[in-house]
Design a protein around this nucleic acid. Structure first.
Length: 497
RNA sequence: GACCCACUAGCUCAGUUGGCAGAGCACCUGACUUUUAAUCAGGGUGUCGAUGGUUCGAGUCCAUCGUGGGUCACCA
């Protein structure tokens, strides 16, 4: 039962004085016949609850469990703060209450230890609601010191690598991830209420479809075959629409083998949804509804501040075609009828393009260069060229563009949706065009998915689809500058040296 | 992938022209029974990211490497 911790060695690094002292205290605790790593503790209240219900609880006994965050000794009495998930509350330890032995045991407690306490709720002379401890139980001895109580933990690398420390000492980080959970909850509740069915489709796919991106490759040993980590669930979700699930969504991870930046993590979270018999106009409205509901649920307002910039999420958001956006922000009318004309316009705006790029891709490049970062307030950009939208339905009047939108907030692409291409003949041709691009060296072009085409041949109802980047949405709602600050464990290189 | 910046005590940070490694918090010792960034007196706990080089002498200058951050490139 009782493990012997006397000779505990530490691997991989030297023990400093602070750690040595804590291990000595652990040994002293064991010497008193107490387990330094305890067991279940029945608490009656959480810290915030005691503060809120002080009127009823004053003079009564409560049991709390949490981490010791500060200790202020005063000889035969001491104050401390304990933190649980709800917040912090002050503890008051007195020798005459605990007895000489009990007070000595309190002396073996360090900042960072997990303890259970029982005691009477009261208010100090200075007015702070506190618990006068009558019983103390050590639940987990902390063998390493916490970061600075005042400055917290700032070192970005440590914050990401040891996120638990970040969460312990930086309250705003806790708040961000609590908000993230609420945001996801809001989206689920909203879609569930609208009759959407949440589904799970393969993360490992034989063909990485549904987006233009480089996939991660993994290997299945028993089948001796390579699989791709999915870059999008799109093609599977639309198979489910074929199967008669008329409203489906999946809220989960995608993986893209691309560079890491302030807006990109190799694995990121998206919600993708598909609604049969709807079109991109309906989906734009749904997008607004989702955003507004999240903002109201999490922030209580649709007027938010991001990086000092006021952003008004109140619908309807501006709708603008890609060519209109280019006109608005560059003054140039993009009406190219040939690749040569398109290149000339791009050249005049000093926008780069590839030799193999067609009119549509060049327009898209121009848009990204001149307009994207200017779209601060929520804006739907519509009318994407068919050339860059191989899964979207063509516009009825102009087959060179699609019934598609992307929406931008603070100059960032936040999501993408369209009327789904449900013509299997057209889809097959679009795949073939992508395959040709792939063969000419574009390793981000879509792969041919014959099985998906067969599904379309069975009949995909007219369908509207949407993908919203959850991480970027959380960044916006929590005013975080980097995607790493809204992902608990962002991708990092393994540490060396 | 390119360029720029950072890396000093457990944490947050100073460190001048190349001349004995510093502060606050934390920690240790002592005092203190309503404090709260408790206070008071004393104590510095270190492979200055790593490895080479220049130099009488390197935290500081040079080179290479590592990790992180930023900008760009890339990227529905």
């Amino acid at each position: 039962m009782t493990e012997n911790h006397d000779q505990t060695e530490i691997t991989g690094e030297e023990m400093n004085e602070l750690m040595r002292v804590r291990r000595e205290k652990m040994a002293a605790i064991e010497a008193r016949g107490i387990e330094p790593f305890g067991r279940k503790y029945n608490f009656t209240h959480r810290a915030a609850q005691v503060l809120e219900e002080f009127e009823q609880l004053e003079g009564k006994s409560v049991r709390l469990a949490g981490r010791i965050m500060a200790v202020r000794g005063h000889g035969k009495a001491s104050f401390a703060h304990i933190m649980d998930m709800s917040g912090r509350i002050q503890l008051y330890f007195r020798q005459d209450v605990l007895g000489a032995d009990g007070y000595e045991e309190f002396g073996l407690i360090d900042i960072g230890d997990i303890v259970g306490v029982e005691g009477e709720v009261f208010r100090t002379n200075r007015g702070e609601i506190s618990v006068k401890v009558t019983g103390l139980e050590i639940l987990a001895k902390s063998l390493r010191p916490l970061p600075d109580k005042w400055h917290g933990l700032k070192d970005v690398e440590t914050r990401y690598r040891q996120r638990y420390l970040d969460l312990i000492v930086n309250p705003e980080v806790r708040d961000t991830f609590i908000a993230r959970s609420r945001i996801i909850q809001s989206i689920r509740r909203n879609l569930d209420n609208k009759g959407f069915l949440e589904v799970e489709t393969p993360m490992m796919q034989p063909i990485a479809g549904g987006a233009a991106a480089r996939p991660f490759i993994t290997h299945h040993n028993a089948l001796d075959m390579n699989l791709y980590m999915r870059i999008a669930p799109e093609l599977y979700l639309k198979r489910l629409i074929v199967g008669g699930f008329e409203k489906v969504y999946e809220l989960n991870r995608n993986f893209r083998n691309e560079g890491i930046s302030i807006k990109h993590n190799p694995e990121f979270t998206m919600v993708e949804l598909y609604q049969a018999y709807a079109d991109y106009q309906d989906i734009m409205q749904l997008t607004e509804e989702i955003y507004v509901a999240v903002a109201l649920d999490v922030l209580g307002t649709t007027k938010i501040t991001y990086q000092g910039q006021e952003i008004d999420l109140t619908p309807p958001w501006t709708r603008m075609t890609m060519t209109e956006a280019v006109k608005k922000f560059s003054g140039v009318e993009f009406a190219a009828k040939s690749v040569e004309e398109a290149r000339a316009i791009a050249d005049s705006l000093e926008v780069k393009y590839d030799k193999k790029d067609g009119i549509g891709k060049i327009l898209s490049n121009i848009f990204e260069e001149v307009a994207e970062e200017k779209l601060i307030q929520p804006t739907f950009i519509i009318g994407h060229p068919t050339e860059i939208s191989p899964l979207a339905k063509r516009n009825k009047e102009n087959p060179d563009i699609t019934d598609r939108f992307e929406f931008f907030i603070y100059g960032r692409e936040m999501g993408n949706g369209f009327s789904e291409l449900n013509d299997p003949i057209d889809q097959k041709e679009r795949f073939l065009a992508q395959v040709a691009d792939r063969e000419s060296g574009d390793d981000e072009a879509h792969m041919m998915d014959e099985d998906y085409v067969i599904a379309l041949e069975h009949g995909l109802p007219p369908t509207g689809g949407l993908g919203i980047g959850i991480d970027r949405m959380v960044m916006l709602m929590t005013d975080n500058y980097s995607i790493r600050d809204v992902i608990l464990f962002p991708h990092m290189r393994p540490q060396r040296d």
